[in-house]
């Protein structure tokens, strides 16, 4: 699978960026593949990359004392995960593993921070997408919280 600017343009995450910007992101990214059940990152682990899922399905979860691993979320193609990498101390808030064979675009967080520092407009757009992603996830988590509390 070759990743091109054109192929990334079709992904929700990149929809607001122009070709030049995507090209820049592509330069600091690489394609990574994970096999079924393979760990992508652990909970409370130092993160270096942020990920955009290209193919497959990723499960997020946390370890609960006395209960073990509890899977709490699913990442579908086009969605971002590992956003904590962008924010020091860049420690993961959940574990992630591949539920089926997956392909992810891993983007160097330090390099993204450089791009953001160089270009305010890019920085705004990028952080807006992160903000929107987190806002939605927060709302869903509240919904989930209420659901689980009402069992």
């Amino acid at each position: 699978m070759e990743i091109t600017v054109e192929s990334l343009k079709k992904i929700t995450f990149f929809k607001e960026f122009d070709s030049v910007t995507i090209e820049k992101i592509l330069k600091i990214s690489k394609l990574q593949e994970f096999d079924v059940e393979e760990k992508i990152f652990d909970e409370h682990q130092k993160l270096i990359d942020i990920f955009v899922l290209l193919e497959g399905k990723v499960i997020l979860g946390i370890n609960v004392p006395g209960k073990g691993k509890i899977n709490l979320g699913t990442i579908h193609p086009g969605q971002l995960f590992s956003w904590s990498a962008l924010f020091p101390p860049s420690i993961s808030t959940a574990y992630a593993f591949a539920d089926v064979p997956v392909k992810v675009l891993s983007i160097k967080a330090s390099k993204i921070q450089e791009l953001i520092g160089d270009n305010d407009t890019f920085g705004y757009k990028f952080m807006k997408i992160i903000g929107q992603t987190l806002s939605k996830r927060l709302s869903d988590t509240r919904f989930q919280l209420i659901n689980m509390a009402s069992v």
Partner: peptide, 12 residues
Amino acid sequence: DETIGVVTVLLD
């Protein structure tokens, strides 16, 4: 083998 999360997650 399907989505984990609330139903609104599916709308994405």
